[in-house]
């Protein structure tokens, strides 16, 4: 079953287009890694998939329904971990998660929040203000926030930023668990060392287009790195401008 279908997606910020016709499908339960140099348009793509803006052209369908940023029901299916923390510095870790749980209409929000605090090892920090968290702790909070409502499509924008090894393992456990329940996951990263933990399928954005790389072995970091360098030799993508 196709969870996400993207056709002819084009987007830009007034200058040259960052995305120049992105086409791909993501099946239910599939986890895909998206690589690309700075400015390739990875964050722009994820933002559009999350409904944060309208593409200049093209169509995004989630479970066969066209994504309309103003339609709240489809947003319930999406989880998004962004570069920003999406947390209120004056609220505690628990209050931040409780607030999100209420907005998403999560059943038994207190229980779900308690469970997730344990899963991301933040239980000891639950009643501290979010501003007191370190970068890595803050990233764990963002992770918990993005999976709180058990989304059907999870978008992770460089999720390893600031995470220590335990954090990486927690992230892997959570995403694997979600994938097992049919959640599709699209992850952007620059961290080639953890590729095999984050996904099964590899693609990259090159000159604003999606390119699948089925022949590469994710366990073989050197092979991926060599292919990456070969593809992107000559510097960042043309017309870049990652938002």
């Amino acid at each position: 079953m196709t969870r996400l279908s993207v056709r002819g997606l084009r987007h830009g910020y007034g200058g040259p287009e960052v995305l120049r016709g992105v086409d791909f499908d993501l099946a239910a339960g599939e986890s895909c890694l998206l690589l690309g140099p700075n400015g390739a348009g990875k964050s722009t793509l994820l933002g559009l998939l999350a409904g944060l803006g309208r593409p200049l052209k093209g169509e995004i369908r989630i479970e066969g329904r066209s994504l309309d940023p103003r339609n709240p029901s489809l947003r319930r299916q999406l989880g998004f971990l962004s570069h920003a923390s999406f947390s209120y510095s004056n609220l505690t870790v628990r209050e931040n998660l409780r607030f999100t749980a209420e907005l998403y209409g999560v059943d038994n929000p207190d229980e779900r929040v308690r469970h997730l605090l344990g899963r991301v090892s933040l239980r000891a920090y639950a009643d501290r203000p979010a501003r007191a968290l370190s970068r890595g702790m803050s990233q764990r909070l963002s992770l918990a926030r993005s999976v709180l409502h058990q989304p059907r499509l999870l978008l992770l924008d460089e999720p390893l930023t600031g995470l220590d090894l335990e954090g990486v393992n927690r992230l892997t456990e959570l995403t694997e668990e979600l994938r097992g329940t049919g959640t599709s996951i699209l992850t952007t990263t620059h961290d080639l060392a953890h590729l095999r933990k984050l996904g099964r399928r590899l693609a990259w954005l090159h000159r604003g287009c999606w390119e699948d790389m089925p022949g590469l072995d994710l366990h073989d970091t050197a092979q991926v790195e060599a292919a990456y360098l070969e593809r992107f030799a000559g510097g960042p993508a043309e017309g870049g401008g990652e938002a």
Partner: peptide, 18 residues
Amino acid sequence: SERDGDCLRALLLAPIDR
């Protein structure tokens, strides 16, 4: 309060009537 941590975008992601 929404500017800090880009929380307005988080609210826009939520399945609520904006």
